[in-house]
Each structure stands twice: as structure tokens, then as C-alpha cells.
Amino acid sequence: MKLSLRIWRQPDADTPGKMVSYEIDDVSEDASFLEMLDVLNERLIAEGEDPVAFDHDCREGICGACSLMIDGQAHGPQAATTTCQLHMRKFKDGDQIDVEPWRAGAFPVIKDLVVDRTAFDRIIQAGGYISAPTGTAPDAHAVPVPKQDADAAFSAAACIGCGACVAACPNGSGMLFMGAKVAHLGLMPQGQPERHTRVLGMVAAHDEAGFGGCTNTGECAAACPKEIGLDVIGRLNRDFRKAAARAA
């Protein structure tokens, strides 16, 4: 099929970017969205132009590296699907497709479609872990965990840290990402001792990074490729309220 693409091109963080149009022919329906961009890039290089830079690695929907705002939707039109798993059969011949980077103050653009998501790492550094130094662990069966809790914790822990939630959120908020981690660790008995300090630390790091606040519109959950739900934000709010009340 034939497509017209409009892609955000920005040479580096300090130079203003703009949308640039490209026409591309003979796109296979079976290609993934990133493979379509690969084909475009091969052509650009052959023409001596700078290829489009974008983040990707596993191309299996698990590493969270790929991003892309496709036609105004984070990871494109297909629900529960990362950009790397989105296939061109979801588009029609002749479509015009806009491709932009995640846009958030906390995720500055590095080049073209590549953004800096280290703010997420800083949130984890501020408490998104359980302190269990190597070698100190009791036997794995010492603490049973009810299956429902383990399953719920897993569902929250499935977050791939892609940042689609931030990109989709009208307020550029990282609450879904943060809530997923708070819920995961807070649902495990091992996570209880640090539950209060964790949430206060993470929230502080989140705000400091420049993410906005949550208005519960649910855009994040709708964009999340791992279908993390708004309940994790509820848990985050609850844990925060209790922790803040205790700290006061």
C-alpha cells in the first residue's frame, strides 16, 4: 500500500523541530509499523538524507523502548499494542499518518522521535524497590502470598515503562506508571515495611521531574499497551494519603 507520512524531525534537543512529509510506496500489510519506518530509512540513507531516529529494541512489546504518537494516539490505534507490535494491516492504502514523539516536559526530545525518559528511572530510584540486599533472603516459601494478591501484583508489575501514559495524558502526568509500581510492591507482603516512605519518595521525584497532576480522565489507561487500569492510581492515592497523614 501507499502512505503519506508526516514525521516530526528535530536534529537535536536545542534546535526547533517540524513535521516533514514523506511519501512511501509498496508497504507490505504484514510489516510492523517500525519495519515500515525501517524501509523508509533505508530509502532516506540511499538518498543521502538523515534517517529518522526512533527508539526500539525488543520489537516484541516487552522492553518498552518503542514509543511514537501515531495520529495523535500513543502507540497507535490498536488497543493493548505497542508500536513495534502494530502492523500495517491496521491502516488503509492512501492513509496519511502523523508520527510524533512523546511530548512531555519531563521527556525532552533528544532527536526526531527519540525522547529522554530517565525521569522514570529517577522515580524508581526514589523508592520503587524493596530493600533486600543479596544474600539476606529467607526461604522463598517462608511468606505465602495469597494467589489473588500475587496475580494482582503481577498485573501491575507488567508495566513496561514505555511512557505512553504520560504521552496520552492531557496533563503529562506519570501517575499510571508510578501507581503501577506502588501497587505492585504494595500488594506483596515483602513490600509493606517501606510502603509509606516509598510512596512519599516516588511522588516527590515524580513532581520534581516535572510531570503534571492527575485529573482522572483515564487517557493513560486507554493508551497503556499493558492495560494497566486506573485502580493502580487509586491505590497510589490511598497510600499517599495515609503516608502523608502519618508524616504530618
Binding site: 526514589a126 523508592g127 502526568s173 501517575m175 516512605t197 516509598r198 512519599l200 519518595g201 511522588v203 516527590a204 515524580h206 513532581d207 520534581e208 510531570f211 503534571g212 497532576g213 492527575c214 497510589l236 492515592n237 499517599f240 494519603r241 503516608a243 502523608a244 508524616a247 504530618a248
Partner: peptide
């Protein structure tokens, strides 16, 4: 870790 830029009540949440 818990030291917020401002107190917890001034945070987004």
C-alpha cells in the same frame, strides 16, 4: 528519600 521539594500536601496528589 521522602524529602519532597515541598511538603506532601503541595505535591500534585
Amino acid at each position: 528519600r521522602a524529602r519532597a521539594p515541598q511538603g506532601p500536601w503541595r505535591s500534585n496528589i
